[in-house]
Amino acid sequence: MNNWIEVARLQDIPPLGSRVVRTPGGDVALFRTTDDKVYAVRDHCPHKGGPLSQGIVHGQAVTCPLHNWVIELDSGQARAPDEGTVACFAVEVREGAVWLALA
């Protein structure tokens, strides 16, 4: 069962930017795309643990600031030739508020 919590306002996350939410299970990075979609992934690159929240958002992906791994925000999968996955979380925008589901 998911535990939904309100974590931000959409306007607080810049387009092509991110915000970090501290949770009991670790930091979660929220990303906003240019079309106002919001994604939530563990703020930890599967390669060397780099902070994805400090990466560059492009399209529906983020590039890790440490070694340029590209992570798909909808699946958490690293783009080939790299391999690895980061945990993704359900997120919804309701009336301008961003809600995060923690399992």
Rank of each mutant, 00 (worst) to 15 (best):
R9W: 06
R32Q: 12
A78T: 12
S53Q: 03
E6K: 13
A80S: 13
G55L: 03
V86N: 02
V20S: 07
A29N: 07
G59I: 14
A29R: 02
S75F: 03
I13C: 08
D27L: 14
R9L: 12
P81A: 09
T85M: 10
P14L: 07
L10S: 04
V70N: 00
A61D: 14
L52E: 02
A80F: 14
F89G: 03
Q11Y: 06
H67T: 06
Q54D: 13
I56D: 07
P24G: 04
P81G: 06
C64M: 04
F31R: 11
D82F: 07
A29E: 02
G50D: 06
S18C: 04
K37D: 12
Y39A: 14
R79F: 14
Y39C: 14
L52I: 10
A8I: 06
W69S: 00
I56W: 05
L66S: 11
R9A: 07
R32K: 09
V7E: 01
Q60P: 09
L10G: 04
L10N: 00
P15M: 05
Q60N: 15
M1P: 01
R32C: 09
L10V: 05
P51L: 05
L66V: 13
C64Q: 06
R42F: 02
I13E: 02
D27C: 10
T63E: 13
K48I: 10
L16F: 09
G25L: 12
V21G: 02
M1I: 14
L66Y: 15
A61E: 10
A87Y: 02
G59F: 13
L16M: 15
D43E: 05
G50Q: 08
D12T: 08
T63H: 02
A80T: 15
I56R: 07
C88K: 11
V20A: 04
V86M: 10
D74I: 09
D82Q: 11
W99F: 15
R9S: 13
H67L: 09
G50M: 07
L52G: 05
G25K: 12
G84A: 12
A90Q: 08
G84F: 13
A97Q: 13
D12K: 01
V62A: 01
Q54R: 04
A8E: 01
V93E: 11
L102E: 01
M1D: 09
C64R: 05
F31V: 06
S53C: 11
V57K: 05
V98T: 14
